[in-house]
Write a protein that binds this DNA or RNA. Structure first.
Lengths: 162, 162
DNA sequence: GGGAACGTGAGCATTGTGTTCAGCCTATGG
DNA sequence: CCATAGGCTGAACACAATGCTCACGTTCCC
């Protein structure tokens, strides 16, 4: 997928406000409506843009506390059973299988520090979980900040070879 | 902010496809259009819904490799200079200040394992960074999965969703 | 009971959508 | 050197959705 500056500008506009609409975007960018439409279609078809979704902030509906938990699973168990077990815990908002000392890393949210204890316990008590180590998030600098990278890719198209 | 089942159903609909529109959502839910509109306004005003944004997937525009890096900063330096230094690296898509042995945790993406080396080096060479430890993400189970938690808050705990 | 907050259904003018089309430009390749 | 393909344009069209406002019926609680 080749991404140029127009693609970047379109995505930036829709990131500010997805409700902007194809027509308004085309006017702001000084291009034809059909162009914006076809670019969006292509970006979506390529999977670059997965879709448009409302951004939910757990901190604003009762879950201001966040922690990152490294999980070590018991030897001999695949990572699949852990995955299915942990999937049932709604407080887990992110989950990866990773290399290194630990096997799984998750990000959890909680209502309070007290509540975090409960969440961590529910993680620990999942089957196939051996040991956990958790750190509390003190400050969120940014989350899911993909736009600068995307702009970098789009801008590098002219200056650098790919 | 009090969240009821209608709020959850509205957000679920818009999460599937934010372009669904207020009118179509109201028809699917069997409520008046003005109701959906006012609910959305309130959710947005409360900050529960931050906005609607296109979901970008770095894996689909050239960055399929992902890693999580724990960073220890040099004693005596505040976390602010590290933050500003790391902010300049577009490959960092997530950044937290955390408690525990390490001080900062970031999630980075890269074009390949080779490229990951370059990204990690650029992190390590940031000012105030003392030591880093990184793990490679082998599998992404889910990212930013807030809907189940939101549904849980909305009193849909008894109900089996999806 | 009074009042506030909420949901309803309806109305209105305006605007955006999806779709299609022919024409034009530029880059690429025979 | 010309031919072809792909992208962008601007326009057209019917249709649908939007933002806004309103009067009215509930429900809940002071």
């Amino acid at each position: 997928m080749k991404i140029d500056e127009l693609d970047v500008r379109i995505v930036e506009l829709f990131s500010e406000d997805a409700g902007i609409g194809v027509l308004a975007a085309s006017r702001l960018l000084g291009v034809a409506r059909a162009t914006v439409q076809s670019r969006l279609d292509k970006l979506r078809a390529a999977g670059v843009v997965q879709g448009m979704a409302p951004t939910l902030n757990p901190a604003n509906f009762g879950y201001p506390v966040m922690a990152i938990v490294s999980i070590e699973i018991v030897q001999g168990m695949g990572h699949v059973p852990v995955g299915t077990a942990l999937r049932e815990i709604p407080e887990i908002v992110e989950m990866y299988t990773v290399s290194g000392d630990h096997d799984v890393m998750v990000r959890v949210v909680a209502r309070s520090n007290d509540d975090l204890q409960r969440v961590l316990d529910s993680v620990s008590s999942a089957s196939a979980v051996n040991r956990t180590r958790s750190v509390v998030v003190l400050q969120t600098h940014f989350q899911n900040r993909v736009l600068p990278l995307f702009a970098h890719v789009g801008g590098a198209a002219e200056r650098n070879a790919e």
